[in-house]
Design a protein around this nucleic acid. Structure first.
Length: 561
DNA sequence: GCCCAGACTTGATACGACATCT
DNA sequence: AGATGTCGTATCAAGTCTGGGC
């Protein structure tokens, strides 16, 4: 039945797609929900917990005190020692103070939050030490909340909401060297929130004594509620969970677009190579940029304002981000990339490129300063317009999806063989996944306990080896069949441990989750599981299976990306 | 063509529950 | 039972891309 649904859906989507944009803009015909859940109000500190200024205890007004607690809670964090963080915090804090408080509290270094800090450390300690029963109560509370606010009714179907809880107030911590770090993220009031639902639905009730900013009935968008966050003034939304039909359809569409690129990519590659020798500089730049996006899976790289961390993507690369090596380590025409990308994650790579690309890059950087744009004649908008002309729906990010999924499929084919055990197959899968994560530069901080846990694993392996030796000796002495079996079993256990060791070592600073969730066509994985008799649960956990339900239902082992 | 707002996807990480070991 | 490690999930920041106004 489910399978039929997806086939039906697929057909509908194709029809819609061929009909053109019109039916594409309507996202639902009915939508009902309870509105967002508001975090609890601030609870003032007990009287014995005091903030001190210049050695003197000061009782703060509730608003001022609340903001003080945000800072106090973060005292252990390295970033409270950063000047930008401190200045932003202190500035915003003072703005919220009463006149008297502002008059008194003039220097952050004279502020002593240590009692407040200690209070919260103890509180979190208490939470950790709760009894099973107390924890159970909290759990039930949470699930009631989930039940009440966590779902909506979309076109008659009960769908899970992704983020039904409003973000609580706190101090903003951007990634990397963010100029706004430490600023106050204000509490969201109902009066800030726009509700989106269908006209004839039960309109969610605002908290008592409050009203919504607005209630609208716009079925061309998918969000249920929105507000402007005060740090950048950008909108934020409450949207559906990835397991929802709406998101699933969109996801499926994304991979279909990537598969259409597969059909087209040869001619696109030919075209951008031709562009490398164009008389027009902007076309050459475009050709090289698309080449980078294709070959290195770089992001498009929109322009950014200076109100955020200085990070770049392809189109926003600056001269200082590349070094050209005519020859490097026995390779010719090597480009060395070194820049901070999304989330201030460093991209470092040395790549041999075609001679013509190398020549062009030399040309692009001629007479420029390090901080000048490498591609000064193009923008992401223009680049995407060109791509769209090559193939409807094609944008820069489709290359990432396409190259990621293609890589997974190729690697799986290469690394899986019939005789493998399930464990070995899973190692192969993880390695294929890893190849993609490396391509997309998905990194993580090495787990804090990595060295230690690695050592522990090695000790276990050593122990297992000794057991095997022991068992073999015994075997020699008493030639018994069951002993033989025991050695064999130990051998299998050893192998399992060794596979685990390899997998973990190779995964030290690589994050597999992002590519699995966002770049790899799940049908590739589903087909692989079916073909090689690997249970799907070994590859996808429950959440992932929910998100990829569409793929699990519609895919057989012969699927080709 | 450019600018900006808005909508939606992609991203690392913090945290807590559960599993496993001592 | 308590310590420790692993995994899943929530969180919320930070990208991409589109469309409308000029």
């Amino acid at each position: 039945m489910l399978q039929l649904c997806w086939v039906f859906l697929a057909l509908c989507c194709i029809i819609v797609w061929e009909e053109g944009k019109s039916s594409d803009t309507q996202k639902w015909s009915s939508l009902e929900h309870k509105g967002p859940y508001f975090p609890p109000e601030y609870e003032p500190l007990p009287d014995n917990i005091c903030f001190n200024y210049d050695g003197q205890p000061v009782k703060l007004s509730p608003v001022t005190e609340e903001i003080a607690t945000f800072y106090a809670k973060m005292l252990d964090h390295e970033y409270t020692s950063k000047e930008v963080f401190q200045n932003n915090f202190f500035c915003d804090w003072r703005e919220e103070m009463t006149k008297e408080e502002r008059k008194l509290i003039k220097t952050l270094s004279k502020c002593d939050f240590s009692q407040i800090h200690k209070y919260f450390v103890e509180k979190s300690e208490e939470r950790k030490n709760m009894t099973k029963e107390e924890k159970q109560v909290l759990k039930e509370e949470a699930s009631r909340l989930m039940e009440e606010y966590g779902y909506c009714l979309l076109d008659g179907h009960r769908e899970k909401i992704g983020n039904f809880k409003l973000e609580p107030p706190g101090l903003f911590r951007g990634r990397g060297e963010h100029p706004k770090m430490g600023k106050l993220k204000k509490r969201i009031q109902p009066e800030d929130v726009t509700i989106n639902c269908s006209q004839d639905s039960k309109i969610p009730a605002p908290p008592a004594g409050h009203r919504w900013k607005r209630v609208q009935h716009d079925n061309t968008v998918t969000w249920l509620a929105s507000w402007l966050e005060n740090i950048h003034g950008r909108p934020k939304y409450i949207m559906l969970n990835p397991s929802s039909k709406l998101k699933g359809e969109k996801d499926w569409q994304k991979y279909e677009t990537a598969r259409r690129l597969k059909m087209k990519v040869d001619s696109i590659r030919k075209q951008y190579r031709r562009d490398w020798t164009s008389r027009e500089m902007k076309i050459r730049q475009r050709g090289v940029a698309i080449y980078f996006i294709d070959k290195l899976a770089l992001r498009a790289g929109n322009e950014k304002d200076d109100e955020s961390a200085d990070t770049v993507g392809c189109c926003s690369l600056r001269v200082e981000h590349i070094t050209l090596h005519r020859r490097l380590d026995a390779q010719e025409h090597v480009v060395e990339f070194d820049f901070l990308g999304k989330d201030s994650i460093r991209y470092y790579n040395k790549v041999p490129v075609e001679k013509q690309v190398f020549k062009n890059l030399k040309l692009f950087i001629k007479h420029k300063d390090p901080e000048d744009d490498l591609f000064d004649r193009i923008t992401t908008v223009k680049l995407n317009k060109t791509l769209n002309e090559s193939m409807p729906g094609l944008t820069a990010k489709v290359f990432r999806t396409f190259n990621a999924s293609t890589t997974l499929q190729d690697q799986l084919n290469k690394l899986t063989t019939e005789g493998m055990t399930v464990e070995e197959k899973i190692l192969s899968y993880n390695r294929a996944n890893r190849a993609v994560a490396i391509l997309c530069n998905h990194q993580r901080a090495a787990p804090k306990t990595f060295e230690r846990s690695m050592q522990l694993l090695q000790e276990k392996i050593q122990k297992k080896k000794e057991q095997i030796e022991e068992a073999k000796k015994e075997l020699k002495e008493a030639k018994k069949a069951h002993k033989d079996k025991a050695v064999q079993r130990l051998g299998e256990q050893l192998k399992k441990l060794q596979l685990q060791e390899t997998d973990r070592e190779e995964n030290k600073v690589i994050a597999l989750g992002t590519s699995k969730l966002n770049y790899l066509d799940p049908r590739i994985s589903v087909a692989w599981c079916k073909k090689h008799q690997v249970p799907i649960e070994k590859i996808y956990n429950k959440t992932q299976r929910d998100k990829f339900a569409w793929a699990i239902d519609m895919t057989d082992e012969n699927f080709q990306f």
